[in-house]
Design a protein around this nucleic acid. Sequence first.
DNA 1: GTTAGCACTCTGTATCGTTGAGTGCTAATC
DNA 2: GATTAGCACTCAACGATACAGAGTGCTAAC
Lengths: 343, 343
Amino acid sequence: MDLDERKYRILQAIIDDYILTASPVGSRTISRKYEQSLSSATIRNEMSDLEELGYLDSPHTSAGRIPSHKAYRLYVDRLMRRVPLAPADIEQLRAHFDRRMRQANNVAQLAARALSDATHYTSVVVTRPAQEADIRVRHLQLVEVSAGTALLLLVTDTGAVKEALLYVDRDLSRDDLYQISRILSARLENCRLEDVPRVLGRLISEWHEGQDVLNSVLEGVRTHIVKEPTTEMVVSGSANLLSFPEYSDVEKARDLLLVLETKDKVMRLLENGGGMAFTIRIGPETGMQETKDCSVVTATYHMGSDTLGTVGIIGPTRMQYQQVVAVLDYVGRTLVQIMQPSE
Amino acid sequence: MDLDERKYRILQAIIDDYILTASPVGSRTISRKYEQSLSSATIRNEMSDLEELGYLDSPHTSAGRIPSHKAYRLYVDRLMRRVPLAPADIEQLRAHFDRRMRQANNVAQLAARALSDATHYTSVVVTRPAQEADIRVRHLQLVEVSAGTALLLLVTDTGAVKEALLYVDRDLSRDDLYQISRILSARLENCRLEDVPRVLGRLISEWHEGQDVLNSVLEGVRTHIVKEPTTEMVVSGSANLLSFPEYSDVEKARDLLLVLETKDKVMRLLENGGGMAFTIRIGPETGMQETKDCSVVTATYHMGSDTLGTVGIIGPTRMQYQQVVAVLDYVGRTLVQIMQPSE
DNA sequence: GTTAGCACTCTGTATCGTTGAGTGCTAATC
DNA sequence: GATTAGCACTCAACGATACAGAGTGCTAAC
């Protein structure tokens, strides 16, 4: 059941105004600021219809109306235009990314900061999620740290370094370790990360001399390297939320900040509806009680067929969706550029 | 100019009560709950004196009194007893540390979470601060990541891994890189971290063949390895602050959270008064406008003569100093145990 | 179908006592 | 001389009341 053209326009006006002001909007405001050819009484009738249809709520009899979740859904699906990023925003984002930053562990933080600064919402950046299937071993090395402890380094073909501290026989000399890592490296090179434990197992059964060390390595690989999530998550700008009137209630604000401090809850918020470029979750669609008045906009960015990561914005349902989408798009593309093997 | 015994007792009672209740305490409360042998009138006289001496403030004429910064100073310096940690706290902390966690990057996070959960304040954990003077190179390795890019790995004698992504001549084969890293490793091993650039410089001038790579390595070392702070910083439990009435004003809360999101501001808060076991900074002593109503308690923990890290608690000046000190002490000692090379 | 007009509703704010906790001072008591 | 009872005074917090302003819904006219 579709709305007629005019109802769309009015609904859009209401949403736009509410996003801007955060206070219920009345018929007179619409009539004066957005639909000057219509009187407030007409708007009033239309608004009454829109409320009937579930697009508007009224906090109380004489307070104007606010958009419902259903209205936001309609807004992002049909009403909202994809706008280009404002030049000022571009400028600001550039400034963040300007410093050279090749190092992978930094990128996420800088990107998150850029996002939260540009949008004034809270941002999340997750690098390299799921899809580890095809990560392969490029290099492996044992380095003595002190008598009895060795550091196992493993470099993947994505350029990530994984490490595990091992406790080994104190009698092993530095050269022993070196020899062992040469052999291991040769055997494991180009092996898929998830296959490493299996290959190591086979090695152990074949090769009797270095059993202890190998077991230690296997243990380290199992507990620290394969299991350890490759995904790094950075949340930035939580404090931004406190500027919005929807969180002038400290209780509410605290509950939300607590969610943002819990890694797996944030991860759950970012869960992505398949390969979509953008996912927008509104209010209850976020699936958590604590975020029932929040919206989450996420974008995944790819390189070829690999998913490189996810960027997301968390804010009140009354969110500047257009700007947020534009900023996410820009940052996503920038990240892909940065990750691109140079030249 | 010292206070007499009774004034100390009364001041202590006032501080204890205020820490508990967060509301100005009146003479009658003290007379009934703490000093039953004295009438409220007597207490009133004493309180008047204490205010005169700068230990108490009155928000307004008829509101009871609250401890001044000077009072807290006196409290932590002289009045406060070192209490043992409550069994319940110990239990809770143990639960946090129980899972095995050798891996250095995890320890900080777990410790921070443990601290903020146990104290209900905000905690900061910094690993391996300052004092890098004596960190030495244990191992160095170049690993090819893709044509034209190589990963420079550097392991220090503290077991930390530092990495830098280098762009190198596409013609360099994997073997070339291996040879180069062998030579570099031999030359730089045991070299102090800060001397690395100098030694590299000397190598470059001596050795003509590998100039390009060496320059690249030097650049990488300079920008990513020596400069990059070795210190990892984790803040946990920012949301806890919002439970305190002192931050029921959202504006204030936001300003403080903003500080906690700014790495170097937090670092500045933790700056430590020399080798003291505990440093307590109260209100203005924190040195920042935004934290003029906060206190910061920090402890550094050592292994032998090395500083391993700093743990800290940030909260309102009305802080449970005794508990905080006890918890920090416990966590600090636990960390040392964990870091200890096993056996 | 649109609009002017009007009665009605409801929040937010300002005003004004009132209450209660607390102080400071004085005079009596130990 | 220190302690305390007693009392006048102060001030924030609370509740009631009134009032203004924004907004709606409905009806009747255009």
